[in-house]
Amino acid sequence: MSFLSGEHMTGGYGGADILHDCTIGVEKGEIAVVVGPNGAGKSTAMKAIFGMLSLREGKVMIDGEDITALNPEARVLKGMGFVPQTANVFTSMSVEENLEMGAFIRTDDFADTMTQVFDLFPILKDKRKQPAGELSGGQRQQVAVGRALMTQPKVLMLDEPTAGVSPIVMDELFDRIIEVARTGIAILMVEQNAKQALNIADKGYVLVQGRNRFTDTGAALMANDEVRRAFLGG
């Protein structure tokens, strides 16, 4: 069993199920990537793992503990960090304040964590007094990731972190994400840019219509002809 895992998840937003017996997991220090066509339930799977959607069947485990019944805030306390796809920064607040708000639930001193985030994303240190809304798309994503890192999570979940950024910025973001993973944090992310994402992935999940279609290492999926043809555009 993985460090974080959603097992046999079945459920949806009240109406018909979107997820069907879907299983996703990630180990500490590892990057797991969820790919698949539009409407495959990738974001829904993320939300289910983070507790923003209640499951009809299946469970979510972290470090051997069943957290299926917890709400998102409680999951943050258990060591999960989540970066939503859109509206993931406080636009009217400065970069520094964004990070402070990320650490809101912490009662200890978080100055060290902020230094670490600034080390990871040096550009943010230069712009720490600027409102996040004035930053470029890539810089905003860095703020969003930084905000989620402020709770010192054991797992970081990213919902399409590279949506809407240029290829160069995307490469840089992936580099940073690898760096984050090297500090021992488990990374679970949903990606549209499947090829590039699988390149850096230790583990890959291909979802189709809410079900696991392929599950393997990133490299193996890249090598798999069927996956390449159907999901990676040749």
């Binding site: 998102p72 636009t91 905000r147």
Partner: peptide, 17 residues
Amino acid sequence: KSMRAYSDNEDLALLSG
């Protein structure tokens, strides 16, 4: 600041606890 955060982005404020 948490008030400003809540006013700015309610969902993200909830995510931040």
